Amino acid sequence: MEVRTIKVFTTVDNINLHTQVVDMSMTYGQQFGPTYLDGADVTKIKPHNSHEGKTFYVLPNDDTLRVEAFEYYHTTDPSFLGRYMSALNHTKKWKYPQVNGLTSIKWADNNCYLATALLTLQQIELKFNPPALQDAYYRARAGEAANFCALILAYCNKTVGELGDVRETMSYLFQHANLDSCKRVLNVVCKTCGQQQTTLKGVEAVMYMGTLSYEQFKKGVQIPCTCGKQATKYLVQQESPFVMMSAPPAQYELKHGTFTCASEYTGNYQCGHYKHITSKETLYCIDGALLTKSSEYKGPITDVFYKENSYTTTIK
């Protein structure tokens, strides 16, 4: 009895394709271990004539594949690729409408935090270190965002349907971005203890939790000093293409032309909904596939993004 075979390709990165001759009487799992086709788990399936010449994702289970996976995804987590594939199996079914010149995501599976993050990423200057993220990001900007969303979920250790947080998501993504040249110098002034300067680099240099107003941050924000008295913390120097200011959701007025974009969060910790506000020729609110415009805006804002380049204080 002759062994019926077909020729397929296996890959971990969709760049390096490895030619395989597979036995049609055995499952993919018996031949390769966990195997995925377009995100779908085909591990328990036997090869079919229609699979001839198709590319299958496999887990990096030998040295060659491990090197290829690390170079593309910059992670050695053995569960990463499987999590990416199972997320992709959902995100490829989502709709990605162009809204006001940006790629958004039609609401499904509690994905409003991903839509808000995706919209924000198209408006701030950011370059990702893992080629996987950078490639998928370019495709997302062009309207094909399924891979990018699935990668975000995998890097953030999230599953489809789980509630997510924009600030946490951005923080994970910033860790995989090139923020080497970003720098922030802060000064804390206390009447009792004097003053202390701190220099922050990388992710810490672009994120701040405690106030939404970048102007206020430049002037000074009140913080408790270690001595128990009130101290003032203010920005001395900022070198970065953008800054992200966050605070627990509270009524906040966004003035046209003073910011790049913002995240609105309605609801409580267990259950809520994100919308995205962007400042173009007027203010726009993007909620999944829905767009509304207004000249002014007041609502429960939790993150505001500002364009920056270089700032030095005039406070002496």
Rank of each mutant, 00 (worst) to 15 (best):
T103L: 04
S104F: 06
E239Y: 04
A69V: 06
Q30N: 00
D62T: 11
L65R: 08
C193M: 06
E264R: 08
L151K: 00
Y306P: 02
N16R: 10
L235I: 07
T19Q: 08
Y208L: 01
T159F: 09
N268K: 15
A40T: 13
T211E: 13
L119N: 02
D135Y: 09
A117F: 05
G101M: 11
V206N: 05
A115Q: 10
P97V: 14
R167H: 14
Y57Q: 05
K46D: 14
V160Y: 00
K44S: 13
T27G: 07
D287W: 02
F32Q: 10
A136N: 08
Y73A: 03
T258R: 08
G299I: 01
Q31W: 13
L212P: 05
N14V: 02
R167C: 02
W107N: 07
P130R: 04
H74F: 03
M85Y: 15
Q175A: 13
V304M: 07
L121T: 07
K183D: 00
V188A: 06
M24A: 15
S104H: 09
T11E: 07
K280L: 14
G257T: 02
Y269D: 15
T226N: 10
I301N: 05
K280I: 09
G194E: 05
N49T: 13
V185D: 02
A177S: 07
F80I: 03
L254K: 00
V236W: 05
Y311E: 10
K93W: 07
M209G: 08
V21G: 11
D63S: 14
D109W: 04
H48E: 15
F174C: 01
E162W: 00
R83Y: 03
T292P: 02
F80C: 00
Y36T: 07
Q134E: 10
L17N: 11
N89C: 14
L59R: 06
P97T: 07
T91H: 06
Y214G: 00
T312N: 08
G257H: 08
C190W: 00
T10F: 07
Y252K: 04
R83M: 07
P131R: 07
V8D: 03
P60S: 07
Q30R: 14
S104V: 06
Q134S: 09
G143T: 03
V8G: 05
F217Q: 04
T266M: 11
L59V: 10
Q31V: 06
E71L: 06
Y172K: 14
Y311S: 07
S294Q: 13
L163V: 10
C190N: 01
H276S: 09
P241C: 04
Y28E: 08
Q20C: 08
M24K: 11
H51Q: 08
I105N: 02
S86W: 01
P248I: 13
A154Y: 02
A142F: 11
Q20F: 07
E281V: 02
H48M: 14
Y265M: 04
Y113W: 15
I45N: 14
K293P: 10
K307I: 08
G29E: 11
D180A: 08
C190L: 05
F32I: 13
L59D: 11
C190D: 01
N187M: 15
E308Y: 03
K54C: 13
E52T: 10
V166T: 01
Y265Q: 00
C285M: 10
R167N: 02
R167S: 04
L200K: 07
E71R: 10
Y96A: 01
D287L: 05
G53H: 11
Q20Y: 10
V185K: 01
A69T: 10
I315M: 15
K54T: 13
L37P: 04
E215R: 05
F217N: 02
E168R: 15
D63V: 07
I277E: 03
N61Y: 15
T35A: 14
H18L: 02
F56Y: 09
E204W: 07
P97L: 12
G257A: 06
Y269F: 13
K316D: 15
R184W: 09
Q30L: 12
V185Q: 05
G82F: 14
F80M: 05
A154V: 00
K127I: 11
T103W: 07
M245L: 04
Y269N: 15
Y284G: 08
R141D: 02
T198L: 15
Y284K: 07
N157T: 03
C112A: 10
Q237A: 12
Y172C: 14
L186T: 14
M26G: 13
R184Q: 06
A142W: 08
E2S: 09
L119E: 01
F174P: 06
L254H: 03
R4W: 11
D77M: 03
L153H: 03
D13I: 09
S79L: 09
E168G: 14
Q237T: 08
Q20H: 13
R139I: 04
A108L: 02
R4F: 08
A145C: 06
A117R: 02
Q222L: 12
R139P: 05
E239S: 08
A205Y: 02
Y208S: 08
E71I: 02
Q30K: 12
T43G: 10
T11P: 06
S295Q: 15
L291Q: 12
Y208F: 10
F174Y: 02
P131I: 03
T11Q: 12
V12D: 06
F32N: 11
G220Y: 00
E2C: 11
N309A: 14
V8L: 11
M244C: 02
E125I: 04
R141H: 10
V12T: 08
K298R: 14
A205W: 02
A231P: 04
D77K: 01
K219V: 08
K95I: 14
K7N: 14
T10E: 01
E253D: 12
L290S: 15
G210R: 06
G202T: 04
C182Q: 00
A231I: 01
A142L: 11
M1I: 09
P60T: 07
S294L: 15
K158P: 02
Q31K: 11
F128A: 03
F242T: 00
G210L: 01
V22W: 04
K158G: 05
P130L: 04
G101R: 03
G267F: 14
D13E: 15
M170N: 02
V236N: 00
S104M: 11
C227T: 03
V99T: 09
T75C: 15
L290V: 15
W94E: 05
K158W: 00
T35N: 07
W107K: 01
P130W: 03
T19L: 10
E253M: 06
E162I: 02
N309V: 11
Y57R: 03
F9L: 11
K219Y: 05
T192I: 08
F32T: 12
N111A: 05
E168F: 07
P300I: 15
L173A: 05
T116S: 09
D165H: 08
H256D: 07
E204P: 10
P130V: 08
L65N: 07
Q251P: 15
V67Q: 12
C227N: 00
N129S: 08
P34H: 13
Y155F: 00
Y138E: 15
N49C: 14
K316R: 15
K233N: 04
D62F: 08
L37M: 11
F56I: 11
P130A: 09
K293Q: 15
G210S: 08
S213Q: 03
Q123E: 07
